[in-house]
Amino acid sequence: MATVKIPTKTESVIHYDKEADVLYVSFGKPRKAEGIDIGDGTILRIDLNTEEVVGITLLNFKKRTEDEKVG
């Protein structure tokens, strides 16, 4: 995979879909992006024009956090 830029000075929006057990994190204003599955239920949303990460989707979020000891 090519190197992508991660935005540092944008507002993040976090949404958890309890029914689907999916956590969505978006950076900045909504824009067209392509999802790239990087494995383990993690999908990067990338603006192909700027090569910036505009969001991250984590599948099975609650299950993951319950299975791992946090802290």
Rank of each mutant, 00 (worst) to 15 (best):
M1F: 05
M1L: 05
A2N: 10
A2E: 11
A2G: 03
A2I: 00
T3C: 00
V4R: 06
V4H: 05
K5W: 07
K5D: 02
T8R: 03
K9G: 14
K9I: 02
S12V: 02
S12M: 08
V13C: 05
H15E: 14
H15K: 12
Y16D: 02
Y16C: 08
K18I: 11
K18N: 10
E19Q: 12
A20D: 09
A20R: 14
V22Q: 12
V22F: 10
V22K: 09
Y24Q: 08
V25A: 00
S26V: 01
S26E: 13
S26A: 13
G28R: 13
K29D: 14
K29A: 11
P30G: 02
P30S: 07
K32D: 12
K32S: 01
K32T: 12
A33K: 04
A33T: 15
E34T: 15
I36M: 06
I36Y: 01
D37V: 11
D40N: 07
D40A: 14
G41K: 10
T42A: 03
R45S: 11
R45Y: 05
R45L: 13
R45F: 06
R45K: 14
I46Q: 00
I46V: 15
L48W: 00
N49V: 14
N49H: 05
N49K: 09
T50R: 07
T50M: 03
T50P: 10
E52K: 11
G55L: 07
T57G: 01
T57Y: 06
L58P: 02
L58A: 03
L58I: 15
L59I: 06
L59A: 04
N60W: 06
F61W: 06
K62P: 00
K62T: 14
K62R: 10
K63F: 10
K63V: 15
K63H: 01
R64G: 06
E66D: 09
D67I: 06
E68G: 00
E68K: 13
K69R: 04
K69F: 09
V70W: 03
V70F: 07
G71E: 14
